[in-house]
Design a protein around this nucleic acid. Structure first.
Length: 414
DNA sequence: TCTGGGGTCCTAGGACCC
DNA sequence: TCTGGGGTCCTAGGACCC
């Protein structure tokens, strides 16, 4: 798949930490971590000490005694990420945003206006630096996958253009871990077969790779390694599921403790669904035990759910079922609730007369009462913010608690 | 390093239908 | 009576990504 390098991948460097250093000059050049109990992001200065995202704050401090912790200004991350995306949008409408700080662009149609892709990439980097004040790395190549690898190689604060005809030369010596879809488990299996570079994966026997990793996964990884994965840049679609989870210290799984946690999670999930005028038919819960093993239970219902109380009840039943199946587990460390098989579903709807009183039906008398509760909560929140009313965030989580603003940054569009 | 929170996709196997 | 074979929907778990 040699061709003109018209795909760009733009990725802000150590985004949260860079924003903090931008907003507070005293932090520049110093090792900083965003977060407290858990490191949500680390500056490059901190990474040199072995500090990385997901690490406990205590370990990070051990590795880097002069590490500066900052709380995190999440609204600023959203605002500055949006400004960067606006700059990208100046060069093409074909922008596929992957997360708050990362996007693909197809600039194939932008040559006449803005010049060659390499030139556009350089302009983007300069404008983001001058107009926003942040470092951004860009990769330019003939495919999304190759552009993404190029931007990773370019970091920090660099530009890598993979010229047509030189794709193999660029790709072959790189570690196989850089292939999109190769995580720790796949990497270990490939290493066990002596496959450590992308070139080796590209040239390995397809039978061996498919036997090792499964037909579909194996074939797609080899396509990527061989640069035969021509997926187009397309503006991101709507999400397929909505979920929320909460980790906490070891807790005996009694209904009086887990009920409020599930109420809070159901409220977050159902509130987002209603805001997007959607509802879903499959409810899934996940329960994690002390040893970090987890189990899930799911139920698909006939009528799409977006009501907080209904979701909470289903979640409670599923969690109870999971616990019954694992009677030996005396402590729980995480609960998750998610809703999938989403459908369009206007949150404000007519009261439909139906016989019986199944509260799970939106038109039933008690179903209508439930919706009225949701609607008035939603209205109060629209005026006064999410924290104004509702299920209190549960205080089970102390050290590991992550602020709601951070959760919102990770949310995909529903 | 014992691990936060948001997602996606894939697979195997069972239930059920024709 | 026992049987083939395909399709769909669903559940549980795993791997991966940002």
């Amino acid at each position: 798949m040699d061709g003109l390098p018209s795909i760009l991948h733009a990725d802000l460097d150590a985004f949260y930490a860079s924003v903090e250093q931008l907003l507070d000059p005293a932090l520049r050049g110093r090792p900083i971590a965003v977060g407290g109990g858990v490191v949500l992001a680390a500056s490059y200065e901190a990474r040199r000490f072995g500090v990385s995202g997901g690490m406990s704050g205590r370990l990070a401090r051990e590795r880097c005694p002069e590490l500066v912790f900052v709380r995190g200004r999440f609204a600023e991350y959203r605002r500055l990420g949006d400004r960067v995306m606006e700059i990208l949008g100046d060069y093409t409408p074909a922008v596929q945003r992957i997360s708050v700080d990362e996007a693909f662009l197809d600039v194939g149609g932008s040559r006449r206006l803005f010049g060659e892709p390499a030139h556009i990439a350089a302009q983007i980097r300069r404008r983001v630096r001058e107009e926003v004040g942040l470092p951004i790395s860009v990769g330019a190549a003939s495919t999304k996958h190759l552009a993404k690898i190029a931007s990773q190689v370019a970091k920090p604060d660099g530009l890598v253009v993979v010229d047509p005809g030189r794709e193999r030369e660029f790709l072959d010596p790189l570690p196989v871990r850089l292939v999109w879809g190769v995580g720790p488990a796949t990497e270990a299996r490939l290493h066990a077969r002596g496959v450590t570079t992308i070139g080796q994966l590209a040239r390995a026997s397809p039978e061996m790779v498919r036997g090792l990793l499964g037909a579909v996964h194996g074939a797609s990884l080899q396509d990527r390694a061989g640069n035969r994965d021509p997926r187009p840049v397309r503006p991101s679609g709507r999400g397929r599921s909505v979920g929320a989870q909460s980790a906490f210290r070891r807790t005996a799984p009694t209904p009086d403790v887990l009920g409020p946690v599930l109420g809070h999670l159901a409220d977050r999930v159902a509130g987002r669904l209603r805001k997007a005028d959607r509802a879903g038919r499959t409810v899934t819960v996940r329960v994690r035990f002390r040893d970090l093993r987890s189990v899930s239970r799911a139920r698909t219902v006939a009528e799409p759910v977006s009501c907080t109380l209904t979701l909470r009840e289903i979640a409670e039943e599923l969690v109870a079922a999971a616990l019954v199946d694992h009677p030996g587990e005396r402590e729980v460390t995480l609960l998750a609730v998610s809703v999938s098989r989403l459908e369009e579903h206007l949150a404000v709807q007519m009261e439909l007369p139906v016989e019986g009183d199944d509260p799970h039906r939106p038109g039933s008398p008690s179903g209508t009462a439930r919706m009225a509760v949701d609607r008035s909560m939603d209205a109060v929140r629209r005026r006064f913010g999410r924290g104004a009313v509702g299920y209190a965030a549960v205080a089970l989580s102390d050290r590991t608690a992550v602020p709601d603003e951070f959760r919102e940054l990770a949310e995909h569009d529903v």
